[in-house]
Design a protein around this nucleic acid. Structure first.
Length: 428
RNA sequence: GCGAGCGUAGCCAAGGGGUUAAGGCAGCGGAUUGUGAUUCCGCCAUUCGGGGGUUCGAAUCCCCUCGUUCGCCCCA
């Protein structure tokens, strides 16, 4: 019988890796709390129409990458391919927005796209998603982008670059789209085949093509930024000014066009040179039309998503390893002693210490080796002699110093032990 | 969905038709039946991702399949 395997494009995040993920999530949670963002937890399943209407039927994500199936009631269901649409739906459904107010939300969780797996690209992947709903102010764009850069910086990521663009409002985009089609149509025969078909379906995406001949043609195409209306331009100017004032570096990339239809005005991507072809760690932008598109009141919004697989890949390259060391390792031998050891571990855990018990019953020498490997600061020893005398040995693994303590006084001494362990750890 | 490379133990691997599949790390047991290092000894793949074929003989050659990596594509 062949052993069961995880599905293609999915993977187990193993105990050796979860400390890194937990550290990323804890850092993000703290940062978002300080910026007044609140967590929301929408379902992973939504009706298919949400994504068709929200993301756009002409996009690759909706057109060929969704996990869509019919449930037992005959409804078309889709595992979310991204998070923003579900959040927008929830905001509408529960009327979370009251007029004139602002809603700051975040969420972390899996999303699903049926794609060919690659380093930094899986079929089930995880995103941290941040959204600011209800403000069209350019300061909102700056706030949201600053949260992304601060988070990445706090985690220790230095050599990242940010591309910034404005795709304008719906009218700007339409006028530019027309101009671009007019420009490209005479060159149609020289474009790569993907770009040829996009000329009808999604011409702006041609700007993004990596095909050399296509790029050469696109070099001389009209510039999107020349087609922004006065207020679109003004909005974009103020976003740039705000970023500059905060010392956030970026480069303008008039060919940055993101693959989801809902984006308007500001669009940005944060990339790393250390990820190969899947270089984008964080991507986002403004989506002023989405809420209305989904049947709610017209509401401006901006947000982004960070890909956690890509982020943790970068952190692993930096050898970031959150500590998983135990405070205390309990060694015991003999029936009476092993019973006592359980009590001792409980007592120490109650004051907040991390305590691992050796369950092997093997020779003390072996147990000490494991104590060492657990990177515990303190080893508690209960053998037959100690059990009989009602005591335990406390051995400080750094210095080797060992003292006896009566079991009866452990409760009273536990808090002091905790302080001493913290002090020893600090010193090392 | 297209193209190319790679799958030998928990990890890193040698072996490229001749039958007991090197070695290292990790793990377990012992030397040391109550104290962490080092050292030494022993154990740890009835089988080379899976299935089929060629052959007297297959980890090695062929086909299929699964997984993975790198591009394309797409995006986080």
């Amino acid at each position: 019988m062949t052993p069961m395997q995880a599905l293609r494009g999915t993977r187990d995040i193993l105990p050796d890796e979860t400390p890194l993920w937990q550290w990323v999530e804890a850092t993000a949670r703290e940062l978002l709390y300080r910026a007044a963002y609140r967590e929301i937890r929408p379902p992973l399943l939504e009706q298919t129409g949400l994504f068709e209407r929200g993301i756009g039927e002409a996009t690759d994500v909706v057109g060929k990458e969704m996990y869509t199936f019919e449930d037992r009631g005959g409804r078309s269901i889709t595992l979310r391919p991204e998070i923003t649409a579900g959040l927008a739906r929830a905001v509408n459904e529960h009327s979370l927005m009251s007029q004139g107010s602002v809603l700051r939300l975040w969420h972390v969780g899996p999303a699903f796209r049926y794609e060919r797996p690659q380093a930094g690209r899986q079929r089930q992947f995880h995103q941290l998603d941040v959204e600011l709903v209800g403000s069209a102010d350019p300061r909102a764009d700056v706030e949201v982008i600053a949260i992304a850069t601060t988070l990445l910086q706090t985690l220790g990521l230095k050599s990242l670059t940010m591309d910034l663009n404005s795709v304008g409002n719906g009218d700007d985009r339409q006028r530019y789209r027309d101009a671009l089609v007019d420009f490209l149509t005479p060159h149609k025969a020289d474009l790569d085949s993907d770009s040829q078909s996009r000329l009808d379906t999604n011409p702006l995406r041609i700007l993004d093509s990596k095909n050399e001949r296509t790029q050469a043609i696109v070099q001389t195409a009209p510039n999107l930024l020349d087609y922004l209306a006065a207020d679109s331009q003004r909005h974009f100017d103020r976003v740039q000014q705000g970023l500059t004032d905060l010392g956030i570096a970026y480069q303008l990339n008039p060919r940055l066009v993101r693959g989801l239809d809902y984006y308007t005005h500001t669009a940005f991507e944060i990339q790393s040179a250390d990820l190969g072809a899947q270089a984008t760690v964080c991507g986002g932008g403004r989506y002023d039309g989405l809420m209305a598109q989904l049947g709610g009141p017209s509401t401006p919004a901006i947000g982004w998503a960070i890909g956690l697989e890509r982020l943790t890949l970068l952190l692993k390259q930096l050898n970031v390893e959150p500590s998983t060391a135990m405070d205390v390792y309990v060694v015991s031998r003999g029936e009476a002693a092993e019973g006592k050891a359980l009590n001792i571990a409980q007592t120490l855990r109650q004051v907040g210490l991390a305590v691992e018990m050796d369950l092997s019953g093997s020779a003390f020498g072996k147990q000490f080796k494991r104590a060492d490997r657990s990177r515990a600061v303190l080893c508690v020893i209960v053998g037959e002699a100690e059990a009989e005398q009602g005591i335990m040995q406390l051995k400080w693994l750094g210095s080797g110093e060992q003292v006896a303590l009566s079991q009866a006084s452990l409760g009273a001494a536990a808090a002091e032990l905790k302080h001493k362990i913290a002090a020893v750890r600090q010193a090392s």
